[in-house]
Simulated assay, not measured.
Amino acid sequence: MTDPGGAAAAGLAVSAPASRSGGAGRVVPLRIGIVGGGFMARVHAGAARSAGAEVVALASSSPASAARAAGDLGVGTAHESVDDLVHDPRVDVVHVCSPNATHAPVALAALAAGKHVVCEKPLATSTGEAEAMVEAAAANGLVGAVPFVYRYHPMVREARARVAAGEAGRVLSIRGSYLQDWLLERDDVDWRVDSAAGGPSRAFADIGSHLVDLIEFVAGDPLARLTSTTNRVHADRGGSRVDTEDEAAVVFETVGGAIGTLFVSQVAPGRKNRLLLDVSGTAESLEFSQEEPETLWVGRRSGTRLVPRDTARLSPDAARLSTVPAGHPMGYVDAFAGFVRDAHDAVRGGAPEGLPTFADGLRAARVTEAVLDSAASRSWVDVT
């Protein structure tokens, strides 16, 4: 992939794209440029189109790769380099879907060119890079958003609303897990396994970041300190040494005094994408499972019940994200579309509730760094 770092370092002139109007109050669709050509590029393209945007350009690791991906996704322009894409005057928002190690240089170049940015998680492979991205977005007056999309399940918003309203009582404990099996076998290989492309953390940075964001978002209470251990199941994959973790287990305390555990694994047989969050308060417990997103389990001493995704019974924020009537299942694709709608609303000057920004991506990077530090030192570590 063309390294755009030089463009950012050169201090390119910045002019944030203004909201475009088609006259008579008609809003012209935002124009999207995508960096990357894999699965996440496909997800971002679909979500952007669902939000009413136009995907006008794509760049990838090579001109040939960009051409293939653009053809597959129906994108009209395949740029020969990332630098060409971030300087394309037609592009209003750059969606960064490339390998983790490229997130910071690509996003910084896009911000320097005056583009709003939606950047995949982990936001960066170090807290220093993540801090630079937060600062660049703020300095240039641009939107920087990170797709922590599990926030956009309506029943997650319902759980958050119940905690915020005090219906759960004082939060006592939190349990979270995120389990997958796609890297179970020694022959299972992906660019994320290599720290040069994916960063020093794999399982926790990749899926643990989602889980930590969800815990803090729902509980409204950040992690204060933690202790952790990690596990590497295979010393090598596909003939190459492995230097990133397959699993991570964490015990934590929050600022508000709750205690909790979280566990992430990419080697759990039969678990495809099982994200589970359980919050216990003095009045009730709440459990959300990403693989069963249409309901929220609510437990009280007097009994338990399943709260369905029915707008007539939900909090306003949960109802806002319910885009189809009850009984018509919503899932991951709908949550992603909801996130992109809010990100694009912010680009137009809105202030959507709960939009995950670069600051949230930096927060996840800091927690990830604390998890690695604790696992290495076998000690408790304070989270900044």
Rank of each mutant, 00 (worst) to 15 (best):
M1V: 03
T2V: 06
T2D: 15
P4N: 06
G5E: 13
G5M: 07
A7M: 14
A8K: 03
A9G: 12
A10K: 07
G11M: 09
S15R: 12
R20M: 02
G23N: 05
R26C: 07
L30G: 01
R31Q: 12
I32W: 08
G37Y: 11
F39D: 05
A41Q: 01
R49F: 12
R49S: 05
A59E: 10
S60M: 09
A69K: 00
A69G: 09
D72I: 07
G74S: 01
T77D: 06
H79A: 01
H79G: 00
V86K: 03
D88Q: 03
D88Y: 03
P89L: 08
V91Y: 05
V94C: 06
V96Q: 07
A104C: 07
A109G: 14
G114P: 04
V118W: 10
L123N: 02
A132C: 01
V134F: 07
E135N: 04
A136P: 02
G144E: 13
A145I: 11
V146E: 03
R151S: 00
E158W: 05
R160N: 05
V163I: 15
R170I: 10
L172S: 06
D188S: 09
D190Q: 01
V193G: 05
D194T: 09
A196E: 12
G198V: 14
P200G: 03
G208I: 08
G208N: 08
S209L: 11
H210V: 00
H210E: 10
V212A: 07
D213V: 01
R225W: 05
T229Y: 01
N231M: 12
R232I: 12
R232D: 11
S240K: 14
V242G: 03
V242E: 10
A249D: 14
A249F: 14
V250S: 07
E253H: 08
V255W: 13
L262G: 02
K272L: 15
L275V: 01
D278I: 00
V279F: 04
S280Q: 13
G281E: 06
G281S: 06
T282Y: 04
S289F: 15
G299Q: 13
S302N: 10
T304D: 15
D310S: 06
R313K: 12
L314H: 07
A318T: 12
A319E: 11
S322R: 02
T323C: 07
V324A: 14
P325T: 04
P325I: 06
G338M: 12
D342F: 14
T357A: 15
D360S: 04
G361D: 11
R363I: 11
E369K: 03
A370G: 00
A376F: 08
S379Q: 13
